[in-house]
């Protein structure tokens, strides 16, 4: 498998790409926080937030609709989570089918539902923009600079590094299972559901043993190269003047958004 499959970074020359990763992380958190703080139905503020997002999209040279397109892939996950909650939203249709439910969607309910979806949708898009314009290792360094616990951030860096390797291992296991699960066209291959679950479990156990051994090997290899518990980087990560200017502009913008949302 190609290592880029998981990578969300898209290389471009843009202001957003050059921006210090710390600024981007704080902007993302600030933007999500700002969305969460806005009251339900603050449409104007939501629109302002969306324009901010579009503007950032444009500056990043990824194209105006880039995060929108990606968020379409991400939103069904949100909807799958909401479906349990908002299943009654679709039920007026079902009323005619079964004829035993009396459903009365109210204006407040619709308002709340829409506001939640918009908040979530805006937040997801900003996250997509962040990972599209920042190499993941830089993101980890930004977290470290922001006093995120060091051992945890190093663990995440390791996770990212070996994601590809272990996913490849998983695909090998899956391919081997497929290769040994031949069936005639039209007939069902493999055993019952319980059996399939057990096979999946055995595969997970196998993967665990392999991963564990690999971690031992990696650790001794690292020791042999003088690992002391710190991962070093050549990237200086210093805040430039432009970084400060941009972050204060963003801060002002977020405050203005809040004012638009609350003062009506």
């Amino acid at each position: 498998m190609h290592a880029n499959l998981f990578d969300r970074f898209i290389e471009k020359e843009s202001i957003i790409h050059r921006l210090d990763p710390r600024v981007k992380v704080i902007t993302l958190v600030g933007f999500i926080l700002s969305n969460a703080l806005l009251p339900d139905g603050a449409w104007l503020a939501f629109i302002v937030g969306w324009i901010f997002l579009l503007f950032a999209n444009d500056l990043s040279k990824l194209g105006l609709s880039y995060t929108f397109r990606r968020s379409i892939i991400a939103l069904p996950f949100a909807l799958a989570a909401v479906s349990a909650i908002f299943s009654p939203m679709g039920n007026p249709l079902a009323t005619w089918h079964f004829g035993m439910f009396t459903l009365t969607p109210t204006d407040l309910g619709v308002l709340r539902f829409t506001s939640i979806l918009i908040r979530s949708w805006l937040s997801v898009q900003m996250g997509i923009l962040l990972v599209a314009t920042t190499p993941f290792p830089d993101l980890i360094h930004a977290l470290e600079h922001l006093h995120f616990p060091k051992s945890l951030s190093t663990i995440i860096a390791f996770l990212y590094r070996y994601l590809f390797v272990l996913t490849d291992e998983t695909f090998r296991l899956l391919r081997a299972r497929d290769a040994r699960s031949a069936g005639l066209e039209g007939t069902k291959a493999g055993g019952a559901l319980f059996w399939r679950m057990r096979v999946a479990g055995n595969m997970a156990g196998q993967l665990f043993v392999r991963s564990y051994d690999r971690s031992d090997r990696i650790y001794s290899a690292m020791l042999s190269r003088g690992y002391t518990g710190n991962i070093r980087t050549l990237n200086p990560h210093t805040m430039k003047q432009s970084d400060w200017a941009i972050s204060s502009t963003i801060a002002v913008f977020l405050i203005v958004t809040q004012m638009i949302g609350w003062i009506r």
Binding site: S151, T154, I155, I156, A157, F158, L159, R161, Y162, L163, V165, L166, T167, E169, T170, L173, L174, L193, R196, M197, V199, A200, M203, A204, L207, F208, S211, Y212, R214, S215, I218, Y219, M222, Y227, T228, G229
Partner: peptide, 27 residues
């Protein structure tokens, strides 16, 4: 675990992530 925790935990996390891809068809 000392400094050994980093590679072990990182790879075990990658293991969980990868193991979540082992799926079994339900229906």
């Amino acid at each position: 675990l000392g400094e050994k925790q980093v590679p072990l935990m990182g790879i075990m996390a990658a293991f969980i992530f990868a193991a979540q891809m082992i799926n079994f068809p339900v229906a």
